[in-house]
Structures are given as C-alpha cells and as structure tokens.
Write a protein that binds this DNA or RNA. Sequence first.
DNA 1: TATATTAGTTAGCATAGCTAACTATATTCG
DNA 2: CGAATATAGTTAGCTATGCTAACTAATATA
Lengths: 153, 153
Amino acid sequence: MTKVKAENIAPRAETIAAADRLHSAAIHLLRRVRKQDEASGIGPAQLSALSVLVFAGPKTLGELAAAEQVKPPTMSRIVTGLERSRLIEITRDPGDKRRMHIRPTAKGTRLLQQGRQRRIEYLAAHLGSLTASELVQLGAAADILEKLLSNWH
Amino acid sequence: MTKVKAENIAPRAETIAAADRLHSAAIHLLRRVRKQDEASGIGPAQLSALSVLVFAGPKTLGELAAAEQVKPPTMSRIVTGLERSRLIEITRDPGDKRRMHIRPTAKGTRLLQQGRQRRIEYLAAHLGSLTASELVQLGAAADILEKLLSNWH
DNA sequence: TATATTAGTTAGCATAGCTAACTATATTCG
DNA sequence: CGAATATAGTTAGCTATGCTAACTAATATA
C-alpha cells in the first residue's frame, strides 16, 4: 500500500506516460548528436564546461563546478585539461588569491562555436525530413521545456 | 561565400533554430533527471545496457554493443560488471560457442524497474506544473522524436 | 591573535570510452 | 579434408570523468 500525503499531488497516468516518452526521446536524441562532438578533439565534460564559459562569461572554478553539477576536484581536472590545450585562460583574483577567474581564449571560443555549429547542423539536417507542422511542434516543446527548466525547484 | 551543393538541401533558418532549442532543452533536461539514477547503485552505462535487455529482450554481446553504440571491448566490461552484481545471466549459444546470450535476472529487472520509476516520477512531478495542453504538446513531441530516431540514417 | 571557514589541489579509487593485439570458434575455398 | 579467412569476444593499456578523503593556502571571525 502506498500512502498518499495530502500535500502531494500524485501525478496522473498521462503525466507519467509523457514523462517516460520524453525521457526516452531525450536520451536517444542526445546519444546521436553527441557523436558529432568527437570531431572537436576534446571530451564531453571539457566541451560542456567551455560552453558555459563562452555563453555565460568568466567563472571561478567553484562556480563552474556548480554550473556543471560536479564536485570541485572533478572541475579542477577538467580545467587543467582545457588550459593545457590553451582553450581557457586563468587569472588569480587580486582581492582573494584563493579564487581563480577562468575565461575562454579566442581559440576556445572558436572551437566551441564550430562544434556547436556541427551539432546543430547535423540535427537540423535530420529534422529536415519532418513536416512543417511536426517541426513547429518540436519547437514549441523545446520552449515549454526550457521554461520548465528555468524554474526547476 | 558558402558553396551549396545541388544534392544537399540546406536546412532552413527555422529548422536550425528548432534544432538549437531542442538540443539545449534535451541537454538540460537530462542533466537534471540523471541525478536520480545515482540511487540505483550502478553506473549509467550499466543501467542503460540493462534497460535494453529488459525492454528489448536477450541479446548477444555484439548486439548489445551495437544497440548502445559502443565498441565490443567496452560492452565486454559493462557486461562483466552487470554479471558480478548478478543483474544479468549469461549462457553460451549451443550452435555457435563464440556467441553469448545475455538476459536480465529477476534482480536486474527489479532494479531497473525501480530506477525507471524513480526517474519517471521525478520528471512527472515537475511536469505536473504544466497545463494539460502543454503536457499534450510534450507528449506529441516525444512521439515525433522517437519516430524520427527510429529511422535515423 | 587563534580558530574556523573557504577555494582549490592532490591522491587514490571506480566507471567508461577507445585501439591494438590476442584466443577460440566457424566458415570458406582450394 | 584441411588451410586460410572471418567472426565473437577478451585482454592490456591508454585517456577522460566521476567520486571521497585529506591536504595547502588564504580569508574571515571570535
């Protein structure tokens, strides 16, 4: 027997079904698209961290770890790899010497933009086989999801 | 100047935009949901392989590697891990002793179903804040994507 | 000033991806 | 039939990415 608390609304069957299909579709979609990233020459974690730096601006190591939802030691190693490849630049915070400021180099920005373009164009090429109506539906769904994700609690 | 080959249809701007938003939404959605899987006690590759076995039935190692889009040595290690945890059972093909048949155990099926339930319910709980119409749109998008992915070339 | 907190690193472990090279079994062809 | 070839999977060894525990250095606080 499952106890149902009054303050929790149990998801309805359709909600569960939609969640299930959405989850599965997202997994399979990303698995395909991620293959395109191999051409970038760096690993997925480095690429993702670089993406944050390019699109959200300079960050400290701790901020970057939080943004990527990994622990500081993990981000420390990712940053080391990015710096070795000259994709990021690190400066020390003058006011607090424990902190580092991490920003993408021109090379890093270029690599990221090119990789992003590859990904998006690959996906777009496949979306090309859909009808105009289906494409509109996918775009709408993406918007709904981004809105939902932006105030995830 | 970009050279446009006659045999390639350049994706339209709306297609590119939809691809971009879809890509971003899928990444962010999965990053959230993936956290729920940590409770399963096994890694993501093992969980995913187990999922294929539970939902698509017994497979050989090679079939499983192809389904998961990894190379045989990688799947070999994943399978070793799953077997050590008694989540799968391996038998030799009587007609071709090189081949192995891999199937989930009752324990494996149970673990997968529970993990799946956690993930889906977590996602469903968040989808609960959407309107009925938005939910229908997400479900429709998931179906369009799965159809697209099933005959990806 | 002494203590506690914070930022990041180092060491060490596990999982997961790859390629190259191997074993064992099946298949094909002379 | 038997030798060469092909196929299924494993082993070894590399890299990347995740973790925790324990450390250093710098800052903040009592």
